[in-house]
Amino acid sequence: MEKITEGMHGIGVPDSWFPRLAALEFAGALGLIVGIFYRPLGIAAGVGVILYFIGAIITHLRAKDTKGLPMPAVLLVVAVAALLFGIATV
């Protein structure tokens, strides 16, 4: 946990954003899980998670933090896959 907060501080994320970002991640994960049973919510959550990780990648790029790029990039790919599977099974 400490490593994550240090990394976020290193790319310029203020402490005041932590609760909001955590809430967005939690809502996205919950939306994806509930979306298994109610596809429209899962699709909306998938779009939200994709936007979240695009923002994370942009933040890392602006801070010139190439070491921190792999994790949000992998999670972006997983989110895109979840969205595509959700759409394909509607």
Rank of each mutant, 00 (worst) to 15 (best):
M1F: 12
I4V: 11
I4L: 15
E6D: 14
H9Y: 09
G12V: 07
V13D: 00
D15G: 09
S16H: 08
W17A: 14
P19Y: 12
P19W: 10
A22G: 13
A23M: 11
E25H: 10
E25Q: 15
E25W: 14
A27C: 13
A29H: 05
L30N: 02
G31A: 06
G31H: 07
I36V: 11
F37V: 10
Y38Q: 01
R39S: 13
P40E: 06
G42F: 12
G42M: 04
I43E: 04
I43C: 07
A44S: 05
V49D: 00
I50Y: 04
Y52W: 10
F53N: 02
I54H: 02
I58W: 14
I58P: 00
T59K: 14
T59N: 13
H60L: 08
H60E: 10
H60R: 10
L61Y: 09
R62T: 03
R62M: 06
A63G: 04
A63R: 02
D65A: 12
T66I: 15
K67I: 08
K67T: 14
K67Y: 12
K67G: 01
L69R: 11
P70I: 08
M71T: 13
M71R: 05
V74N: 00
V74A: 03
L75P: 00
L75C: 07
L76Y: 02
V77Q: 02
A82I: 11
L84I: 15
F85I: 10
I87N: 07
A88Q: 06
A88H: 07
